[in-house]
Write a protein that binds this DNA or RNA. Structure first.
Lengths: 235, 235
DNA sequence: ACAAAAGTGTTAAGTCTACACCCATGA
DNA sequence: TCATGGGTGTAGACTTAACACTTTTGT
């Protein structure tokens, strides 16, 4: 058998949009690019796919190399292939979004790497078409989170209902009645109430919950209904 | 500025999963591959991305070249990048799914090209990882069609409610009460009732409807709710 | 006249939304 | 003791699901 000799070959990159939540604000993990072109400009986590690795492997490797993050929720999003998106040489980028517990990585990241958590509302100008990727990622996590319980990936293993509600409210940029919210969330059966409380946010303290991992994995593809009206997903 | 000289470059392909509906059965458009490797085996519509074209352009070009189809609904789905998915040389494939009105193309396709409509339930063994692509495509159109009115792309511009219902029933592999179905569908406001009837399916005849294109485009991203319980999307 | 598919309405069950007060505690 | 955030229940509105009979017309 022969090779496909007449065809063009291209650089293939992976770019990761990494979301984190600090209890108040949704943030993205950005880095100052360490190489040309666009050295020192803000950029998503990205890198080239190597000959020996699959796309998923590349995404995991890049995330680990640039941030130390490992074993986080990572999902392929979309492939960007405009011919001139990288001015140096045509590069096709396969984008991924990641959801991480910001607390696990906050210090590690900013000291070991030139990476920084930036509030979603204050994203600076990014290189290439990374802005488009961010926009699409915002839409994608809303879309997915409206139907599947992915947002738990952004929280520590023990969390309170007020924290969870704040998270949903920031992702969907809306406010939700707390009585209705807790009813809906608890009705999923995904949460286990613990006996101790988080006293950080208030005097009375809020009960900790943790995920029922059995149900979580079993129901991951099931539809949940936490957000009042999914019409808010329109744009 | 320099090139990214040390990086590997890869073949990038586009593969299209093309759905059609003949009024009874959902079908996929497959071709007998005309070149090696796997010449004469069944395959999705695919081809390599050229240096001068974006991914979307490549997908449209390939669809046109292999089938004559043009201007059809085409949406990027997922990128497949296992290192050994093509045994000859590593190729990263960006998959697209397409929805076409089968009647427009039925004859043209089978005479001009070595393409054939195959019922979704009787897909033969396909080359490479094309089986996986088909599985994912089935899931993807279900998922999307549960929320957005994409299935109209599979119908002629004039269609009847019984046709539409059969289509939904085949996509979701379920059966729906026709009274409830027509209420839901008409409640979207997307349909305009015409004055003449299709007498092909019955003696009495069924009224033709057409899409209100204004509303169709305006509501494309809006959520609709035609399928009784979206839990059927689970697997 | 009958077979075959099209068309149409109602009721009961379930779900969703809006809404307000008491509780626990640290300062 | 008071200020702050946490926790809980209900009633009305709305939506969904289940269900059966009449109409049309070609043969």
């Amino acid at each position: 058998m022969t090779k496909y000799s007449k065809q063009s070959r291209f650089l293939v990159a992976v770019d990761c949009i990494v979301f984190g939540f600090d209890g108040e604000t949704l943030k993205l993990l950005l880095i100052k690019r360490s190489f040309n072109p666009e050295k020192d400009k803000w950029s998503l986590m990205g890198g080239f796919v190597q000959a020996s690795e699959s796309l998923d492997q590349a995404a995991n490797r890049i995330l680990k190399q640039l941030t130390g993050l490992e074993g986080v929720y990572l999902e392929q999003m979309y492939s960007f292939g405009e011919t001139n998106r990288d001015p140096i040489e045509r590069t096709i980028s396969v984008s991924y979004f990641a959801l991480v517990d910001i607390h696990k990585y906050e210090k590690q990241i900013s000291t070991d790497f030139h990476a920084e958590w930036v509030p979603l509302k204050r994203i600076p100008k990014l290189i290439f078409d990374h802005q488009d990727m961010v926009e699409l990622a915002k839409k994608s996590i809303r879309y997915k989170a409206a139907l599947h319980p992915i947002l738990f990936e952004l929280l520590p293993s023990r969390f309170t209902l007020p924290q969870l509600q704040t998270l949903y409210e920031s992702v969907f940029n809306t406010s939700i009645d707390k009585r209705n919210f807790s009813k809906r969330v608890l009705a999923t059966g995904l949460l286990i109430k613990l006996n101790d409380k988080d006293k950080a946010g208030s005097k009375r303290g809020a009960y900790y919950y943790q995920l029922n991992m059995q149900k979580y994995y079993a129901n991951f593809q099931a539809f949940i209904n936490i957000i009042p009206n999914p019409d808010s997903l329109q744009n």
